[in-house]
Structure formats: structure tokens, C-alpha cells
Design a binder for these strands. Structure first.
Length: 272
DNA sequence: AAAAGGGGCAACCGCTATATG
DNA sequence: ACATATAGCGGTTGCCCCTTT
């Protein structure tokens, strides 16, 4: 199905919005809301298409829009979430109240991408490469799945061979399922690890088996070096496959967000 | 002082996802 | 089940403004 662009109708205005148009749009939405964007401009008396009105409202006129430069904390969140999710700007924006996907996208392309390139080029002189896929393992007293409540602490860990050593990255959980700590054990000296180290995607089979055993890939960050361990859920389809069997999208996103972004804090595990 | 170049950002375009009849 | 309408998303464009030459 091919549909004509919505602003193609003659007489509809394009380009930058005037103050007068903004005022009309704000006034209309305050009185009537925006249940139907396509019909809105006609009812409000604006010579714009609904799409243009929606964009103007969401990206600029909404009362909860945060103005001004991004803080370092916000930039860090964007960088880490982009590492994890890719160009899923709306998902990233959902974690930054008052910021829009468009704004984040712009900041990424104009500032953060360059910043990251600079940082990476500085790190590349002292890095190692992964040579094997991570093996996902879980140790605890007796249970093999999280559906069973264990009376003893659990430890989930990834093991992989690198060009210089065998490293094990692990996350500890209390018997109540509270995230406790991350660990890294390597032959000395502890190597620097660059971004690409983690980039290999886990296969569907591996995910299935991970789901079956619930030995998920939760080893999330290294001490002092915040890189996601496995980008299993960067692929939306795979992510959905996981969430549909365990918890809903929002829960899932919040869970991974907590694990990846807020390392070191106690994090409740989802219930299965 | 004027022109050229580049960066930043608002807005548009085209596509997909979802809702509805 | 299908067709169509609408909302939403991400890529891209183009204008404005600042800096450099």
C-alpha cells in the first residue's frame, strides 16, 4: 500500500513554526487534548498536517520538555543504552524524562559519537580480543532454574577465552534474588577490554537454552569498566522472545536498564 | 567586512506497527 | 482475514548561526 505524504495537500504549510501557530496548538491541546492528530489541525484552525502538529508538540511544546544542555549523567546513560540497544532512540528517551527521541538522536550524532570515538581510540592501544563465545553457567546449591527458590546464594558467570588469558566474569545474587556484586577473575595483569569485545550476538539456540535453564546472561558490567557482557537483547525479536516468556516489555527494559546502567546497586530480579 | 565552511537542531519523509471497521 | 487509517519511529534534510579565513 502506497500512501501519499500527509502534507502533500495544497495549502498546507511546511517549515519552521511561528509563535502564533505554537500558541494556537498549545491552546487547542490544553482544551481538547490530542486524541486524533490528523483531525486536530482542521479543528484548531492550523494550516498544518497532523503529523507536523504531533512532532511540534512532542519535540518542542509539551510542558514537560526539559531545555538546556545534557548533563554528564544523561550523556553517560545515552552512551550506555546506545551500546546496549543501538539506535532505539525512543526507548533511550523513555529513560531520560523531559528529553525527546529527536533531541537524543541529534545529541548522539553531533556530540556523543565523536566523544566515544575519541575515547575508544585512546583505549585501543591496550586491549585484548575475545577468541571464544561466552559460556553461560550458573552455580548454586541444588536448583537448576530460577523458578525454584533456592535457599543459598547463586552465582551466574560467563567464561571465555581471550587472546591473552582465560577470564571469568560473574554476578552474584543473594538467596532472595538480590543482585549483589560483579566479579572479574583473570590472569594477571587484568587486561583492558574494548567495546568490540562483547559485540558477538548470541544465537537463538543459545537464547532458548538460556531461557530453559534461566541461566541468563546477567554478568553485566566490569568493575570500573562499564561494558555490557552480551548483547543478547539488542535484537528486538530476541528480546521479545525472552520477555514474552517471562515478563512484559516494560519490566524487561527496566530490568536490563537496572542491570546495565546502575551497576553496583541492589537490583530485584524479576519473578518467573 | 564579506564569503565560505561547518555544526547544531528543528522539521520533514518514508516506513512499520498498531488500531479499527 | 483483510483493507484502510492513524500513530510512532528512525533516517535524512535543510536552514540558521557561529567561526574561520
Amino acid at each position: 500500500m502506497v500512501r501519499a505524504p500527509c502534507c502533500e495537500k495544497k495549502g498546507l504549510k511546511k517549515g519552521p513554526w511561528t509563535q502564533e501557530e505554537d500558541e494556537i496548538l498549545i491552546s487547542y491541546i490544553q482544551k481538547h487534548g490530542h486524541s486524533n492528530w490528523r483531525a486536530l489541525p482542521k479543528h484548531a484552525g492550523l494550516l498544518r498536517c497532523g503529523k507536523s502538529c504531533r512532532l511540534r508538540w512532542i519535540n518542542y511544546l509539551r510542558p514537560d520538555i526539559k531545555r538546556g544542555n545534557f548533563t554528564n549523567e544523561e550523556e553517560e546513560i545515552i552512551i550506555k543504552m546506545h551500546e546496549l540497544l543501538g539506535n532505539r532512540w525512543s526507548v533511550i528517551a523513555a529513560k531520560l524524562p523531559g528529553r525527546t527521541d529527536n533531541e537524543i538522536k541529534n545529541v548522539w550524532h553531533t556530540h556523543l559519537k565523536k566523544k566515544l570515538l575519541k575515547t575508544n581510540s585512546q583505549q585501543n592501544s591496550n586491549t585484548i580480543k575475545r577468541v571464544s563465545k561466552p559460556k553461560i553457567n550458573r552455580t548454586n546449591s541444588n536448583s537448576s532454574t530460577l523458578t525454584q527458590s533456592s535457599s543459598e546464594p547463586s552465582n551466574y558467570f560467563l567464561e571465555m577465552e581471550t587472546t591473552s588469558s582465560i577470564c571469568t566474569f560473574s554476578s552474584d545474587f543473594s538467596s532472595q534474588g538480590k543482585f549483589m556484586d560483579n566479579n572479574i577473575n583473570c590472569e594477571e595483569p587484568k587486561p583492558e577490554i574494548d567495546e568490540s569485545f562483547w559485540s558477538e550476538t548470541v544465537t537463538d539456540d543459545e537464547i532458548s537454552s538460556t531461557m530453559l535453564t534461566n541461566s541468563w546472561t546477567v554478568s553485566n558490567e566490569l568493575p570500573n569498566q562499564q561494558y555490557p557482557v552480551v548483547e543478547t537483547f539488542q535484537n528486538q525479536e530476541k528480546y521479545n522472545g525472552f520477555s514474552s516468556n517471562s515478563f512484559d516489555d516494560d519490566d524487561g527494559m527496566d530490568f536490563w536498564y537496572d542491570l546495565f546502567i546502575r551497576s553496583g546497586e541492589s537490583t530485584d530480579l524479576p519473578e518467573f
